[in-house]
Computed example of a mutant assay.
Amino acid sequence: MQTSTNICERMDCSQELSEFKCGTMIGCHLCNKSIHEISLLLNIPQSTVSRIITKWRQLGTTATQPPSERGYRMLKHPVCRSH
């Protein structure tokens, strides 16, 4: 039997993590669990666990932030084509 290594098959990529799972990750982190241990415990990729913990350290929250008000990157100089 072949096991799936596709992350999207192990975890629904179209949805955000629940507040409960994020809180569980932070709780485990505060109890000195490693990212690897948290990943195995919750069946979530290590990169996701690491990203959530980093976000929590930097912002103090795991909530999704609203998009920036600036929107798209503005060009400093107009682009001119040479004929």
Rank of each mutant, 00 (worst) to 15 (best):
M1C: 06
M1A: 10
Q2D: 15
Q2V: 12
Q2G: 08
T3N: 04
S4C: 10
S4P: 00
S4G: 04
S4K: 03
T5F: 00
N6Y: 03
I7S: 09
I7P: 05
I7M: 09
I7F: 09
C8Q: 04
E9V: 04
E9F: 06
M11F: 10
M11N: 09
M11E: 06
M11H: 09
D12E: 07
D12Q: 07
D12Y: 04
C13P: 15
C13I: 03
C13N: 07
S14Q: 13
S14M: 10
S14E: 14
Q15N: 13
L17M: 13
S18E: 07
E19Q: 11
F20H: 13
F20W: 11
K21V: 01
C22V: 01
C22F: 00
C22K: 08
C22M: 12
G23L: 09
T24N: 10
T24W: 02
M25W: 08
I26C: 03
I26R: 08
G27Y: 10
G27N: 11
G27H: 11
C28L: 08
L30D: 05
K33L: 06
S34Y: 00
S34L: 00
I35L: 01
I35Y: 00
I35D: 01
H36W: 02
E37N: 05
E37Q: 10
I38S: 05
I38V: 10
I38W: 07
S39N: 02
S39M: 03
S39E: 01
L40N: 15
L41Q: 15
L42Q: 14
L42I: 12
L42F: 13
P45D: 06
Q46C: 13
Q46E: 08
S47I: 02
V49K: 04
V49W: 02
V49S: 03
V49N: 03
S50H: 05
R51H: 04
I52G: 06
I52S: 08
T54K: 12
T54Y: 13
K55P: 00
K55R: 10
R57M: 05
G60I: 10
G60F: 01
T61H: 01
A63W: 01
A63H: 09
A63Q: 14
T64V: 14
T64G: 01
Q65G: 09
Q65N: 11
E69C: 06
E69A: 10
G71L: 11
Y72M: 12
M74A: 15
L75I: 13
K76E: 14
H77T: 07
H77S: 14
P78M: 15
P78Q: 15
P78C: 12
V79F: 10
C80D: 08
C80W: 06
C80Y: 14
R81T: 07
R81S: 05
H83W: 06
H83S: 02
